[in-house]
């Protein structure tokens, strides 16, 4: 069958796709870690209208996910938020006017990385990348890359429980472009 082509998310998704609590996969959980950073373009300027989605294994290694990422209150229709028990594995966060995002989650079990899907105005087809929470020798993706390229996928610890991960959509003359992935 002919596949449906991608089109840009455009600039006006903000009242439709982001939802309250979208960036907090483990509300109230004492074991949650913070992953944050900026999205930059090829001029080194922050991208204030990018949308990042995250998909990861649960802390127990499960890849089944769970419903309830955007759980709703049937009375008011408002987003009631995750129930704090089920780990849905899915996060969605738009960059702010500084091009910054913050995600709170639990480290996945069995794999060292979070899957990331990047959308933006000016990006006609989304991009996949990964946040590796630690350097992971022997990982089939990292081991095929030069050290400089692999480094774009590995989050930098800033202080206990807080990691920095930037996305660079294009080489800006100084900083390495993020490694983006295709799946076959």
């Amino acid at each position: 069958m002919t596949v449906t082509p991608s089109q840009t998310v455009g600039p006006f998704y903000g009242y439709a796709l982001p939802f309250p609590g979208g960036a907090d996969l483990a509300p109230g959980h004492p074991g949650a870690i913070t992953v944050h950073g900026y999205v930059y373009d090829g001029a080194g300027a922050p991208v204030p209208d990018a949308l990042l989605e995250f998909w990861q294994a649960g802390p127990d290694g499960s890849r089944a996910g769970a419903t309830g990422s955007m759980r709703r209150d049937p009375v008011t229709g408002a987003v009631a938020g995750r129930d704090g028990v089920a780990f849905t594995g899915f996060g969605r966060v738009a960059t702010d006017p500084d091009g910054h995002y913050t995600l709170r989650t639990l480290p996945p079990g069995g794999t060292p990385y979070l899957g990331v899907c990047v959308f933006a105005r000016g990006l006609l087809h989304h991009l996949y990348t990964r946040v590796y929470l630690e350097s992971s020798p022997g990982d089939p993706v990292l081991s095929g890359l030069t050290a400089e390229r692999a480094a774009t996928l590995i989050a930098t610890p800033e202080r206990p429980g807080v990691l920095r991960f930037d996305v660079r959509l294009q080489y800006d003359g100084t900083h390495e472009e993020t490694v983006f992935l295709a799946f076959e």
Binding site: Y113, V141, L169, Q170, E177, F180, L181, A182, F183, E184
Partner: peptide, 18 residues
């Protein structure tokens, strides 16, 4: 300014979370 210039890295790992 919003497209990567490097080729995408192809992942053929049947265990990929994605």
């Amino acid at each position: 300014l919003r497209h990567p210039k490097q080729s995408l890295v192809v992942v053929r790992d049947p265990e990929a979370v994605e």
